[in-house]
Simulated assay, not measured.
Amino acid sequence: MPLYAPSPALRGRQLAADVGLLAWLVLWVVVARTVHGAVLALAGPGRAVEDLGASVAGSMSSAAQAAADVPVVGDELAAPFEALGSAGGSVGGAGQAAQDAVGTLATVLAVVLVVLPVGWLLLRWLPWRLGWVRDAGVARRLATADPALLAARALATAPLTRLAALPPGTAEAWRAGDPTATRALAAVELARLGLPADTLGRDERRLGLR
């Protein structure tokens, strides 16, 4: 099934819309990456706290081991250092938790910055593009099966300027079953969809339109 109209004008608009959507996506991906990196920079203090806690915990652990080697009172001397080591481990854990929170925030913001604007445009682009593919396919079938329906559609929805450009009396002739008027009105609807008039099908002889 064709994704683009044969008409250069409509095909150009479709291509421009597709390229615009792609550019919009790239733009917001770049913005999201920039914001993600900027937010991750806020994790610096958390890393510093984690490093400080690890350093304190390591130093106190070494001191506790040294104190434990003192005869008789080693256990009592080692206890305060072990407590300080435990406190240093808790500080390091808090620093890691802060980094995790910043990382989660950075990821959420990046996803939101891509999903919301791209989704907003996609909800407008997708129905238009898929709607044309559907309508063009139906119009091609009607062009061979029942051009009169295309003619009726043109009378109901075509711009007045397009209808006014038709020969005078076209509507009356169509109502009277004139094949030339039916073909002219059907061609207006096909042109709206960017389809050439020769889409009016190979079964026109059977339908009496040639």
Rank of each mutant, 00 (worst) to 15 (best):
L25C: 12
G53C: 04
R129G: 05
A136S: 15
L200D: 05
V102M: 05
A186R: 10
L42Q: 11
R33H: 09
G93T: 02
A48V: 06
W132R: 08
T161D: 12
L155K: 00
W24I: 10
S62D: 14
V112K: 00
P147Q: 11
G85R: 04
A87D: 10
P196R: 13
A16V: 07
A66Y: 12
L150D: 03
L142Y: 09
V26E: 03
E189Q: 11
A78S: 05
L21C: 08
G93I: 05
A145R: 14
V138C: 00
A98L: 10
A139V: 04
R162Q: 13
L200A: 11
V133R: 14
L22T: 14
L207H: 12
R202L: 12
A181N: 01
A181E: 02
D75C: 07
L160K: 00
L77V: 11
L77I: 01
L84E: 00
T161C: 00
R124W: 12
P196F: 14
R141L: 15
R205I: 10
A136I: 08
G169W: 03
V112D: 01
L21E: 04
R47E: 12
V108Q: 03
A32H: 08
V133D: 06
V39R: 05
L113R: 03
A54R: 12
A16G: 05
A57R: 12
G169T: 08
G95F: 01
G44L: 13
R47T: 11
G37T: 04
L22W: 14
T34H: 14
W128A: 15
L21Q: 05
A48S: 14
M1P: 15
L149A: 14
V115R: 02
A17Y: 03
